[in-house]
Design a protein around this nucleic acid. Structure first.
Lengths: 348, 348
DNA sequence: TGTTAGCACTCAATGAATCAGAGTGCTAAT
DNA sequence: ATTAGCACTCTGATTCATTGAGTGCTAACA
């Protein structure tokens, strides 16, 4: 990926660049005459035609039909994204609107992010809540709620709170409850969720003695409360934006896409495969590269943000292949930074 | 509404009925010949034509264009819904799929309901969480989470749990916390949310003495935690179903409709105006009757369910005007009953 | 050898013209 | 009051010609 492919000389690259930029701007196939004027290399349309013919043979561009101009192929877009995008530092003014309002509720923040991004880009967006896997238990509290019902509250390191109601045979007296609370807190505090293994659990049960069944119940509840998070909170926004792009505006495509957004399960694939990847933390899927079949006519750009200690979430933008990659990647980079920081702020 | 309008004699009603039923089934404008065969009254198409001409003049049906059959007008649909739908007891078999799985989480249940209903009807659906207004406080618990942070947990009568993190200047010792907990619980338990007035609050503060500021904080937190519910939780499902109906399948309409579903704010109007209304608890909006402008080409059927003691929520179905009103109303009745019951069950 | 002018050719998009079919409204007969 | 019959209207599908953008190729040129 490092070496600009040898198969393309300077001039071809310039032409390819011009074609793609022009197409991104207009959405129309671009012809040789246009390029002949648009670029600074002073060449006649005929020469451009020859070059374009080569570029097509190499697979970077294609014709919708014989007598039309050229549009970029997936390979073309890929080349553009990998080599042609300038890392120009865009004025930050434009990003002003992307300032996240500070709120207590994680959920609110994420919804806000999705919305903001959708409005700002005119594409569809998704944001996932951070995964809890590496999150640590900060605090556990059991309280008697009712005869026969106990409320278990678990607070995780990033101030995420989970509740679970446990039904027990007989009410516990205050003293026992206090003991259990202390037991659980000393036993589990500071553990990350997958550090709670069988050994930990049996040890707790032993210590609980006569009340070991309660401990079991609590562990079950804990598992359930947290596995609820497992099936992944995903917030989407601006899904109707995709209706704006004629190349996607076909009844079947729209149904498929919108369904994918509504069901959300599929989107998890995007998230799962998006982890990893290089220093920038931003990943671009063009057409079929995306791990979600229904998005084969789209491009997807994702970023992962991190709330400290491996607690990660994903932001994604879904739009037509001819999306404004530069702007989108910039917006994501910007938001990613803000989100990376938000944890510390919310702590203070 | 009681008296079948005198302007329609027996025969006209029969014909209108036939036209509407036929149109609901096919979606095509229906002509005189069709009616002439479809009904048992043995009349020639010519006679039907005369009657249809009358019906049109009276505003019950209309022609998309001169040489087409007739379709029902809003007034026609209204008449149909009010007078023509038979209260036949539909086999319950068909409803089998509509059994709600019992789950602890209210949120899960509601999402499930929306989905179930959407799959079953092929229309778009919405379900709102019950409003808390008349819900009573069951239990409050403050716990020390961290230095400077207190976790407040509030459980409402219907087992809805809300958390709020409170930041305080200095940590409280266990004893004080216990006192505050007792104070709050004895002071607020069993009160519905709007029963907490200034008098209650000042009394609490007095009793708290030196810690009155904490009480203030708690009340603020309480307000915030519960007002979050105010901006109305609405779950939608099957929104892409509306793409299936050609009469709605027009780019602009779709954008508007889907946006309404995504934004959700507008949907609140449906909910607010849907309260009240007669014994069945089911309400039908046809076209412009709906309090949401974007739904002028749709019909909306809503039902309110009740989780005891005035804690109400709404279920709604949004589809084309030619929706299967009978089936929809039956489904809603069915679900409404199940939901009305679910509270008691989840208590046991 | 690379570049360019010129020309024939292709194809999508547009619009006019035509035609069939469904359905109506009206009139005259029963 | 009902019906048969017919002229009329309008939509939707089909065909056909026209236009214009853009290409590929060839031959001339620097």
């Amino acid at each position: 990926m490092e070496i600009p492919k040898e198969e393309l000389d300077e001039r071809k690259i310039k032409i390819l660049d011009a074609i793609i930029r022009n197409y991104l701007a207009t959405g129309e196939p671009v012809g040789s005459r246009t390029i002949s004027k648009y670029t600074d290399l002073n060449l006649s349309s005929a020469t451009i035609r020859n070059e374009m013919s080569d570029l097509e043979e190499l697979g970077y561009i294609m014709q919708p039909h014989t007598s039309a101009g050229r549009i970029p192929s997936d390979k073309g877009y890929r080349f553009y994204v990998d080599h042609l995008i300038r890392e120009k530092d865009r004025e930050v003014t434009e990003m002003k609107d992307l300032v996240i309002e500070k709120t207590e509720k994680m959920e609110q923040v994420l919804k806000q992010v999705a919305k903001l991004l959708a409005n700002n880009t005119n594409y569809a967006t998704m944001v996932t809540a951070p995964s809890y896997h590496n999150n640590k238990i900060k605090f556990i509290q059991l309280s008697q709620m009712d005869d026969g019902q106990i409320l278990a509250v678990v607070v995780l390191n990033s101030n995420i709170v989970k509740n679970q109601v446990i039904t027990v045979k007989d009410a516990l007296d205050a003293e026992t409850l206090l003991k259990l609370n202390i037991l659980l807190n000393t036993g589990l505090n500071g553990l990350s969720l997958h550090e709670i293994n069988l050994a930990t659990i049996t040890r707790l049960k032993e210590q609980a003695g006569i009340h070991s069944t309660i401990v079991s119940d609590v562990m079950d509840a804990l598992a359930e409360a947290l596995s609820e998070g497992e099936d992944l909170q995903i917030y989407t926004s601006g899904t109707t934006n995709i209706l704006k792009y004629p190349e996607l505006n076909d009844s079947e495509k729209i149904t498929n896409l919108l369904s994918t957004f509504e069901e959300k399960e599929e989107l998890a694939n995007l998230v799962n495969s998006t982890f990893s990847n290089e220093e920038t933390g931003i990943q671009v899927y063009i057409g079929n590269e995306a791990p979600v079949q229904t998005m084969k006519d789209c491009s997807v750009v994702t970023a992962t943000y991190e709330l400290g200690e491996g607690v990660k979430g994903t932001i994604g933008i879904i739009g037509p292949k001819r999306m404004d990659y530069e702007k989108v990647m910039d917006s994501l980079k910007n938001l990613k930074q803000q989100l990376d920081g938000i944890f510390d702020k919310s702590k203070e």
